[in-house]
Structures are given as C-alpha cells and as structure tokens.
C-alpha cells in the first residue's frame, strides 16, 4: 500500500457532524484511484487528510506502511517535498509570482534540485497541456482551467510517488480534460500512485481498471 487510512474521522471545528467517520481506505502502489461523491461529500477533505495536509481527529493514516503520527515536521516537509504531491482544488498560486515561478516554487527552496532542468521539463509539460506561452504571466492573467493545468504541472513535475489531485479536470473542456486525464494515466503507468477527487460527471474520463471509491454523504 502506498497510503491507507485506518478508521479516520474528520470533523471541522464548529461543525455539528464529522465529514466522515471511521473511514477505511487502502490505495495500492501504482493505483489510479478515483474518489467520487457529490459536492460537499468530503472528497477534498479526504484527499487532504491522506496527503497529511489535514490531521484526522481520530484514526491513523499510514504512508508506505509507516504511521504518519510518528512523523515530525521535518519528516513531513521531506515527504511533501519529494514524494507526495498535491493539486489543490482552489487557491493554487502565489499571486506575485509568474506561473512558471509558481510551478518551480517548491524547488526554489531546495538547493539540491537542478532548476534549469526542471524549468525545461515544466515547459514540456506546459506545452503538452497547451499553455506553454502562458508561463511568463501572472496567475490572475490565466483562466480557471489554465490555472488548473499549470498547477497540475507543478504537482507532477517532481514525479511524485503519490499524487493527490483535487478536481484536476473540472472546468476544462472535454478535449483538454482528456489530455489531462491521459497524462495522469501515463504518470500512473510510470509508477506514480494517483488519487483523484472528482465530480461524478467527470469520472468517465478516468475509466481505468483501477480503483474507485464513492463517498456517500452520510451525515446530513
């Protein structure tokens, strides 16, 4: 398993009910896992919890068999910098950096990475997603879908072991959505475990022999 959740419960402060309770989930290495569920069912919350960006109120999240509760901040930073990657649903970029600088953001703080090489790779990905010429612009100068694709480039640039993609194709036209979905599938074939959170409407695009979990809005 690349990541598994054991009996996790997440309840936001000030909310009457938990988003989910005692949830179990196992994601195998190299899996292409799709999370579906209606709006507000907790897809984003689960992705964030699995990625360690949000701590469950109870239960535990295991990453490659290790209980992440035992990890300190340094270990988390290391894993987030090198192994687990994330495409947030919104608030993707720093407004005062260009798109390319935003894509390179995590790496600009890591001295060991070769920025020039990463820049080249980033441009290749941007080209593939059809937004190469937008690299030098600022995030607010891009459409929502363009921003999504650029943020996806940032997430997959480091060839993560685990990619958590929250609505990667939402807001894209069918054709571009296919391109993105295809790219994700290719990435999975190369060994990255992928968990995608998406609306029911988009699930068609990800048709794989992989796994699928439909979270049911159970507490409302």
């Amino acid at each position: 398993m690349v990541v598994e959740a054991k009996s996790i419960t997440v309840q936001y402060k000030g909310k009457k009910y938990p988003v989910f309770k005692d949830l179990d989930i196992e994601v195998e290495k190299g899996a292409f896992f799709v999370l579906t569920g209606e709006s507000g069912s907790g897809k984003s919350t689960l992705l964030a919890t699995l990625g360690g960006y949000l701590t469950a109120n109870s239960g535990s999240v295991l990453y490659q068999g290790e209980d992440t509760k035992q990890w300190n901040k340094k270990k988390w930073a290391d894993v987030h910098g090198n192994e687990i990657s994330y495409l947030p649903q919104s608030n993707l970029f720093l407004p005062y950096d260009t798109v390319l600088d935003n894509i390179l953001l995590p790496y600009r703080f890591q001295k060991k990475k070769d920025l020039e090489q990463l820049k080249e790779q980033a441009n290749e990905w941007l080209d593939q997603f059809g937004i190469k010429e937008l690299a030098k612009y600022y995030p607010h100068e891009l459409s929502g879908g363009e921003q999504k694709r650029a943020a996806l480039v940032r997430a997959i640039l480091q060839k993560p072991k685990l990619l958590l993609a929250d609505e990667p194709t939402t807001g894209l036209d069918n054709e571009t959505g296919e391109v993105v979905a295809k790219a994700l599938k290719e990435l999975a074939l190369q060994g990255t475990s992928i968990i995608v959170g998406t609306h029911d409407a988009c699930v068609e695009k990800y048709k794989t022999d992989g796994h699928h979990l439909d979270i049911i809005k159970s507490y409302r």
Partner: peptide
C-alpha cells in the same frame, strides 16, 4: 497565511 500554507504543502520547511 495562505502563501505560507502553499509553501508548506510543497514541503518547504518551517525553518525556511
């Protein structure tokens, strides 16, 4: 806060 959150999500250490 948001800016820092983004940095943290991508593994920039608290120290940095």
């Amino acid at each position: 806060m948001k800016e820092v959150a983004l940095l943290r999500i991508f593994g920039v250490t608290n120290g940095s």
